[in-house]
Design a binder for these strands. Sequence first.
RNA 1: GCCGAUGUAGCUCAGGUGGUUAGAGCGAGGGAUUCAUAAACCCUAGGUCGGAGGUUCGACUCCUCCCAUCGGCACCA
Length: 538
Amino acid sequence: MSQSAPLHPDQKPDQSPAYITTPIYYVNDRPHIGHAYTTTLCDVWARAMRFAGRDVFFLTGTDEHGVKVEKSAQARGIEPQALADENAAEFQKVMKMFNLTNDDFIRTTEPRHERQVQSLVKRLLETGDVYLGEFEGWYDEGQEEYVTETKAKETDFKSPISGKPLVRANERNYYFKLSAYQDRLETLFADHPGFVKPDARRNEVLGRLRGGLQDVPITRTNFTWGIPFPGDEEHVIYVWIDALLNYATALNLADADDDRHRYWPATFHVIGKEILWFHAVIWPAVLMALELPMPGCVYAHSFWISEGKKMSKSLGNFVDLPTIERYLDVYGLDAWRWYMVNNGPLGATDADFQAAGFHETYTSDLVNTVGNCASRTTAMLGKYFDGVVPADAGCEFPGWDLKASADEAVTAWRAALEDFALDNACAAGIGLLRTVDAFINATEPFKVAKDPERQDELASTLARCIEAVRIASVMLWPVIPQRMESLWLAIGCDIDPASGDLTTQACWGDSLVGAQTEKVALFPRIDAASTPMADVAS
RNA sequence: GCCGAUGUAGCUCAGGUGGUUAGAGCGAGGGAUUCAUAAACCCUAGGUCGGAGGUUCGACUCCUCCCAUCGGCACCA
């Protein structure tokens, strides 16, 4: 059997550092499916890239400042930091629940972050990109916060909470000179069409960019729970600049030298579509001002809705942590990750979380395809070869070339990951298994086995099936790591994703020949009745 | 209100630059079979391609208007 490499035969695999981030999550919220989703996407990509040999840094964390946290804490009679600690712990619990492999968890109240934010803001002050100016707007005295012109108009210039009229108020604020970056931003978007993905989101940004940019205030004085502005401590650095800079401070970028600098800039900033503007426009402008290299891509996914409706507390269809835990109990973590990646809002439209859909996806993809294909292949090896993988006898099966199919799948898988098309990466993996199924149906090894004259044919068929299954498992591992690892155990192959040798592992070969295998049932069939139903009051 | 996106079979979606009977997966119905987790396989389902106009010999694909859903509209993560 030839051992030619399926991908970039002449090139070494890309071993450059890679940096992927989630937004930092606001501690005033409780973790829910949205947080789990974004973080899981990043985890899948990070796992795949590490396996592929890249030096990956995967960051997530919490955003802990701001008026809302201050008020929530006040309402409970505790210090803001205590509230932040409590909820940050809740978010960290999520990382454990989903077996996420983030390399760091940054909190904006950490000294390392605060110190660097001050230092970076100071730098902006020195370059003239931050200046002291006057801010005027509609102020809600009851809520002690400014509301936007649009919001004010919507509520007829009255406070939505107290009903009292909004007042015109002003204060001195530090501004970021966003307007100065209009041209450079346009150039950025023109030169890097992939800077914002998906395309629909990019168009939105471009459209709004055409409308022109105004400078943006980056400090507040109406609350104190935040990072003091360097040199003018009455001002607190406003949350979004505080928050955005986490991507830099986690890598100690404000410090002269650090090991983590090699990860900069981000390969992907994965975010939800609601914070696109900050990431696609303000963030790059700030980086330009700081003279830091631009990220490769801001990937803005859409939202989950639940059972056809927007998630809301009053509807009771919020997919929160306890709900998710029920799914994990019944279906297992891998099934949850598979559903997130394959049925989620990776594209421009929102995705619907449906209990029935979850069960369907689990059954058709994982039980009937991945599980069943592994099962029938290992069963035949057990029956006809006592579980020992035979050598490929080199028989020809016109119209079938599993090696070529595997190579194609791996190439497609790689391309999908470059694009953050995680669902397509899954499709490449599972597609190869469908091909194996079709191959078995066409060559009928279970009939061939009855004829002692056709042992070569039988060996050729099953050797190729199990090798294709092995390669598919490599592609599927980032999404369903637990079950793929049990598969590896069952087919006696020694694969360690941490070794970064995916290129070797994804290569068609005969490494399994002689391996002792046993029949596996990777994904148990589950009674639809035990699917956790959303508590939708209908 | 403004900007943008989306609206194609029950569900999730494909459908460069307009052109014979509009596709796939899942589900559903039927069939056949056993290597396998009642799985894989075969056949079937006839959706006015959101609505109304228009351009054209001809539009799902171009234009206009309308409707529905979603995001943003600058401090709201």
